[in-house]
Simulated assay, not measured.
Amino acid sequence: MSVNVRDVAALAAVSVGTVSNVMNHPDKVSPITVARVQDAIKSLGFVRNDAARQLRAGHSTSLGLVVLDAANPFFAELARGAENRAMEEGFTVLVGNSDEKPEREALYLDLFEEQRVHGVLIAPFGDAIPRLEQLKARGTPAVLVDRGVDHPGFSSVSVDDEAGGYLAAEHLLSIGRRRLAFVGGSMQLRQVVDRLAGAQRAVAEVAGASLEVIETDSLTVRAGREAGDDIRNRAAADRPDAIFAANDLLAMGLLQALMKNATVSVPGDIALIGYDDIAFAEAAVVPLSSIRQPSELIGYTAVQLLLREAEDGADFVHEQVLFQPELIVRESTGGRAS
């Protein structure tokens, strides 16, 4: 038999309204009454029906976050920043992993709307704006994370990925490398395309430099190992002398494959730089140079914008927050471990 609020009120000898205040506004109730109601809740094993409360309120105290790859530490840190800011305001964050699949992304957006979340943060795969416009029209604001947006109706928090790609390639060129390769994909991801564009711009500024593009099907360690195997198996003269990986997971896989059987020396034969500066980058067998993003700050700032939009409604002025990346030099490009 399920226990309801009336049962708690009867055991505590208070009104149903007092039980509601204890759960939602305990500051309005005397400490003695709060303790009595809490004892009754514990004794009966009562669990509040939050779904019913959400229906009455029209929304929940939860925010939805859709990330591209929950296994990527970058998104774990972004989620931590979002959660920290949300909890400061009494909200929680529900995380969905699209796994770079549009159908999974759509599934989570549908689910979050059904749950009447207070708002949605999303690192989109492809063009999610039409679906986000539907959410917004029905009262659920959304903020894009890890990707900018050219749309006046939405805010975004991201890093200048083209500048990051330029920094990475410019660094490789500054240490004398000329046969560069860019490893990354899918090219449906705006972040990958922008990082490549930045690298191409840097290479175009140096006479005699070239950039080979090696597209992968994902941004994982496995995809990096596969690309690294192909590069390692080439004749030495056909290998690049430097690689810019679109993220650190790819760079980790590349490093594992290149150094297999001591075939290729990093950075002696091939200098290697990644992107994101996840914790594993510094801990790699050859510490990885990387382009650092302020991952926690991205999530934290996105929640700030989302809560402000939810509160201000039509009066909210949307913002495009663009952080600048930072070059971190370690042993994989000839620097010292930091």
Rank of each mutant, 00 (worst) to 15 (best):
E309D: 11
R131I: 02
R48Q: 13
A337P: 09
A199K: 03
Y108W: 13
V5W: 00
A79D: 01
K28V: 10
G96P: 08
Q54R: 13
M187T: 09
N72Y: 02
V303I: 05
V47R: 15
V286W: 03
S156N: 08
L189F: 03
N84E: 15
K136D: 14
D150K: 14
R85Q: 14
R195S: 04
E77P: 07
H318S: 03
V266S: 04
V37D: 05
T61L: 14
G176K: 07
L11C: 05
A262L: 12
E100Q: 14
R85F: 07
L249A: 01
S295F: 00
V8T: 05
V16T: 13
G253Q: 03
I231L: 11
E170L: 07
I175V: 15
E226P: 00
V93H: 08
I270R: 05
L94F: 12
P240Y: 08
D248M: 05
L121A: 08
T263R: 15
E205V: 00
S15Y: 03
L196Q: 13
V159F: 06
G126I: 08
F182T: 02
H151L: 02
E113K: 13
D238R: 03
E311F: 09
Y166S: 03
D99I: 00
A57G: 01
L78S: 06
L144S: 07
G153Y: 05
K260V: 08
R178C: 04
V285P: 06
V193H: 11
V286A: 07
G96A: 14
